[in-house]
Design a protein around this nucleic acid. Structure first.
Length: 685
DNA sequence: CTGTTGAAATTTTTT
DNA sequence: ATTTCAACAG
């Protein structure tokens, strides 16, 4: 095969714009890719094309939003190259560097961290670990009890995190995002100072540090040059969801923009709460004047009526790259907009349609239910469970965030890094007679001994812990010895922890089974460090994921937060709770920018659908997620579906008939029951 | 100091 | 429902 034919083969199946993007040369490249325009395919082909041009795969860096995205893209690159090379794969042995910013940062910092004074054996704190450490410092500084309430640990963490990720000073961050904390500026400064000290003493990095240290590594003259020299090409997916710090990392990696490719859609920027800024993608051409911009506008995903509805929604946005998505997938029905009496009604209506779709030959796994907040699916989950309809839920509380799994991991982390104060305290307070004070003192001993367990061995525990203490020390020494394989280590931890677990929880059986599962799963990881890193940086998003790849014949419905649905697509999509207060979330109506992000969120949700889209609005809702109160109120349909947008939907009203089977009436006049109810409500509200 | 008990407050998205 | 905080007994 000639070179030209080979190139052609790699690029086959791409439209002209995609082709231009995939085979672009060395200059900085911005691909503005609307929803469903084959963004992933383009990026995958670009990587394959670069390798086809003779670039060493190991010198390509592919930054994605999740590990799953990276894995899937690299598999596709492999397939293209294998097809071209007639079987043998170039990439498998010489891997492209692929992963999230945080995962890549970890790899690089393990390699080069020493040159900027970072301990090699650092462990990584997830969000709640970081909050715990911050809380320790908060208590120590006496900020926990003040006359006026000091911000809680979660709030402090958010403030800190925003400063770091947005690279902004404390004062403006407080003023703009946390005005109710402005009085505490001095205390917060002290708190953050002390927090930095404690992290250093404990040899731990939090999520933000990973980026911060990567950036610092690149800023270092010598180390920075070595890292830069590693890569010829840097490709970034979901660029609209990167923050200022990540942009800085990229600028240091590719100072002239040479070799830099970014892909994204400003209309899908939905991580502002994590300090992502749509300015990164909007200002890319300004930052790299030599940049080539390619627009992908042909949508391959959705039918014309679905696309029209989604376009109308995003059409309400203020500033964005003008693009008109079009689809030649004509035909198909208008999306449905179902007004429901209440949440039960919504649940019933959604399940009935899902089963109906299944009857029509659409497997459950090709259908998804999307919602703004994790708890919005509680009732649906209960009902699905009751009817034996299998589902996987993405987003929300993760398996590794449950208390018992965290306990187990704390043992491993303490063995990995004896200075890790949060992990250590977590383990120590499990023992009777040891509380916060003693655990603090014990961890101090370890920090001073440089990680040796000797001071613990000679410590005299209080009577209550007398029998457990020597066993704990012995366990930790075993773990530290590194003689045992990972599953054996976990087995040993379980043996120690099991009685504590039985004591600690009301319903310990399922928790105990979870830990058994963790032990089984652990054999998949190279070693303890690999497992700890992967579980903190990219935890399995559903319990089912943990059990391994699903069987091929297994069919399950997907439930997902809209955030976790990013980049994915399904034949049929149901968007539930499309009422004001949920979309936009009451939490996010403080500023026009926040509201605009909520609008984009709805756009992301709608644009996931290929052939069938259904939006539901339960009008009566409970104030609180749980059911400990029956206080309820009436909601209004989301403000993002004003009448002119609603015209693109087929509107229905749904109610539950006497036999539980739903009935529906199409709305023919402009006056919906919602409107009637609203008018009535106006009489007294 | 630890561990328990009771009262009060809470509200979202995630690497 | 769950988390957080203060008060108090051992």
């Amino acid at each position: 095969m000639s070179q030209l034919e080979a190139e052609d083969d790699i690029l086959s199946g791409l439209n002209p714009q995609q082709r231009e993007a995939a085979s672009h040369g060395e200059g900085p490249l911005l691909i503005v890719a609307g929803a469903g325009t084959g963004k992933t395919a383009t990026l995958v082909h670009r990587v394959a094309w670069l390798i086809g041009q003779g670039i060493d795969p190991r010198r390509i860096l592919l930054l994605t939003f999740t590990r799953r995205a990276a894995g899937e893209m690299l598999r596709r690159v492999d397939r293209i190259l294998a097809r071209q090379a007639g079987g043998g794969s170039l990439v498998r042995d010489a891997r492209v560097w692929g992963g999230t910013f945080h995962a890549i940062a970890t790899r690089l910092l393990r390699l080069y961290g020493k040159s900027i004074g970072l301990a090699a054996g650092f462990t990584i704190h997830d969000r709640s670990d970081s909050e715990d450490l911050l809380n320790v410092v908060r208590t120590e500084l006496g900020l926990a009890k003040t006359d006026k309430r000091f911000p809680k640990k979660g709030t402090c963490m958010s403030i800190y995190s925003r400063c770091v990720n947005a690279r902004q000073r404390l004062a403006p961050v407080l003023k703009r995002h946390f005005p109710w904390c402005e009085d505490w500026e001095d205390e917060l400064k002290r708190l953050f100072d002390a927090y930095l000290d404690r992290k250093e003493a404990a040899a731990v990095l939090d999520y933000d540090d990973l980026l911060l240290y990567w950036d610092a590594l690149l800023a270092d003259e010598e180390a920075g040059e070595r890292v830069r020299a590693r890569f010829d090409c840097v490709l970034v997916d979901e660029y609209q969801d990167t923050n200022s710090l990540q942009a800085s990392i990229l600028a240091r990696l590719c100072p002239t923009g040479r070799g830099l490719t970014v892909v994204g859609d400003d209309a899908q920027s939905i991580y502002g709460f994590r300090a992502a800024t749509v300015r990164n993608i909007l200002d890319f051409p300004k930052q790299y004047p030599a940049a080539t911009i390619v627009h992908l506008e042909q949508n391959y995903r959705s039918t014309q009526p679905i696309l029209a509805a989604a376009n109308a929604v995003i059409g309400q946005a203020r500033e964005r790259y003008q693009k008109q998505l079009w689809s030649d997938r004509s035909g198909g029905d208008k999306p449905l907009l179902v007004t429901c009496e209440n949440e039960q009604d919504q649940t019933e209506s959604v399940i009935r349609r899902i089963l109906q779709r299944r009857e029509e030959g659409i497997d459950l796994r090709r259908q998804a239910v999307l919602f703004r907040a994790s708890h919005h699916s509680i009732m649906l989950e209960a009902e699905l469970t009751g009817r034996n309809i299998p589902f996987h839920k993405y987003g929300g509380l993760k398996f590794v965030e449950t208390a018992h799994v965290k306990d187990l991991m704390a043992f491993l982390r303490l063995a990995e890094n004896p200075r890790d104060l949060v992990a250590g305290s977590r383990v120590l307070v499990l023992l009777p007679g040891i509380g916060p004070k003693r655990s603090r003192a014990l961890m101090q001993l370890l920090v001073e001994s440089g990680g040796s367990l000797e001071p613990w061995r000679s410590w005299t525990p209080p009577l209550a812990a007398a029998s457990e203490w020597p066993r704990l020390v012995e366990l930790l020494e075993e773990l530290r010895g590194g003689e045992q394989g990972l599953p054996a280590q976990i087995h040993a931890v379980r043996a120690f922890y099991e009685p504590i677990l039985l004591e600690k929880y009301d319903n310990p059986a399922p928790r105990s089974r979870d830990l058994e599962q963790v032990e089984q799963l652990s054999s998949r990881y190279a070693d303890r460090q690999a497992m700890l890193v992967e579980l903190t940086l990219d935890p399995p998003s559903s319990t089912q994921d943990l059990a391994g790849p699903p069987q091929l014949d297994e069919d399950y419905l997907v439930l997902s937060t809209i955030h976790s649905a990013k980049g994915l697509e399904w034949d049929s999509v149901f968007v539930i709770h499309a009422v004001d207060g949920n979309i936009p979330s009451d939490m996010a109506t403080g500023s026009p920018e926040e509201i605009e992000e909520e609008l984009r969120l709805l756009y992301v949700a709608l644009s996931r659908a290929e052939n069938f889209l259904c939006v539901t609005c339960p009008l009566s809702y409970y104030y609180s997620p749980g059911r400990w109160s029956d206080a309820h109120g009436f909601a209004q349909m989301t403000r993002f579906l004003p009448p002119h947008v609603r015209k693109l939907f087929r509107e229905c009203v749904s109610w539950i008939g006497g036999d539980g089977a739903g009935e529906e009436a199409e709305i023919v006049t402009g006056l919906s029951s919602e409107a009637i109810r609203r008018q009535t409500k106006d009489l007294w509200s």
